[in-house]
Simulated assay, not measured.
Amino acid sequence: MLYKGTIGLITPEVKATTLVMVLAPTAFLALRSSLVWVALPTLVWRFAAARQVLWGTGYHYSLVLMPVVFAAFIEALAARRDQAGSVRGYVASAAGVCALMVPQFPFWQLVQSGTWHDEPRLAVARRLMNLIPDGATVQASSHLAPQLTNRATVGLFGWEPGRRFPQWIVVDAWTPPAVRWPLSFEVERNRLNWYRVRGYRDVADQDGYVLLARGDGGLVLSGSHVIGFQGRVLAPFGGSGVDGAALVLTAVTGGVGGGQEWGFVRQDDGSYALVNGVSGLCVDVGVDVDGASSGPGAGARVIQRDCSGRDSQHWYVTPQSGGGYLFTSVSSGLQLTGSLGGDGDVGIQDAVGGFFGQEWSIG
């Protein structure tokens, strides 16, 4: 801890380099102003952080520092206003340093002719992004996301805190490794396939741009329905109305008895809460098959619970070519899976290329 708070603040070399590059544009005169202390907390937390991208100048993290540093520079110049030669010298030195530093940063691209000419691929990107309707939820590659934020709810593709099951996904698969984030090419390709397995369909794949749409096909459900599998239907064990009762596949009894009907309540993101017609409780994820508390992990049992609006109670319903439907958990991406044979528990299990037992009927 002592090392991190002392030597660790200026090592490795990239930290010392950043400090020099922050102060050099002022010919280091900013150090003669007390205003420079305002920049200190930001420098300390950046250099103490574990994320290495915070240490250097390759990103935007110095944006809040430079106005402070230049304000300190101006105050220090003002203090020398009676020394005209000194002021001119510092201003000339600062201008020279800035001129030498500009080619190392993206600002230099403004004077390069290639910056002002569109690549042929950009027309393809614009055309595909125009297929995404206003107000949609989207995950996009980092350089495509800013083009959509004025008319859609956008997250970065592959960034876990983002929206996990958007209505649309648009990715530039040809993004160079040097500017690719947060996924490598291989991981990005696998992630796209992960979504395809979960019902997303390919809308376009052209010149490296991939556009996927959530495969609900415009499906809108409402009212009460029976959810079936292999001639049996989903219901609480024994028709129970108890909060926490396991959901099972059981023989069809007809009528409203036994809790075999479920209300489909559509959510803003296109998913559904499934509300039991007898108990008024929602389909939720319970515990592992060994009884351990698990959260929404693979193999967890499905139960009915008091409707709270949490993601584990919301399900995307995706039509399949054979006439069935997949139920995909918003919280985990795993799919509702029925047990085979006689009456049995219902669990969620990761989709493995269309795992048998995951296509349901809605009656």
Rank of each mutant, 00 (worst) to 15 (best):
R201P: 00
G155C: 13
P161V: 07
W168Y: 15
V171C: 06
G158E: 01
V171N: 08
V187N: 09
G162K: 03
V197Y: 02
R201V: 12
L183S: 05
F165Y: 13
E188C: 09
A173E: 15
S184A: 13
V179M: 09
W159V: 06
V179N: 05
L183K: 02
S184F: 07
Y195G: 02
R164H: 07
G158V: 03
F185V: 13
R198F: 01
G162F: 01
Y200N: 01
D202M: 08
E160T: 13
R163G: 09
V197E: 09
V187Y: 04
V187T: 13
P176H: 09
V197T: 08
G162N: 12
Y200D: 01
N150L: 11
P182K: 06
W174E: 11
F185A: 15
G158I: 02
V171S: 12
R198Y: 03
A152M: 03
R151S: 10
V171E: 10
V187D: 14
T175D: 07
R201K: 13
V171A: 14
V170K: 11
V187S: 13
D202E: 14
R151T: 07
I169D: 09
T175L: 12
R201I: 04
A152V: 00
F185W: 14
V170M: 10
P176W: 05
P161N: 11
L192N: 05
R163T: 15
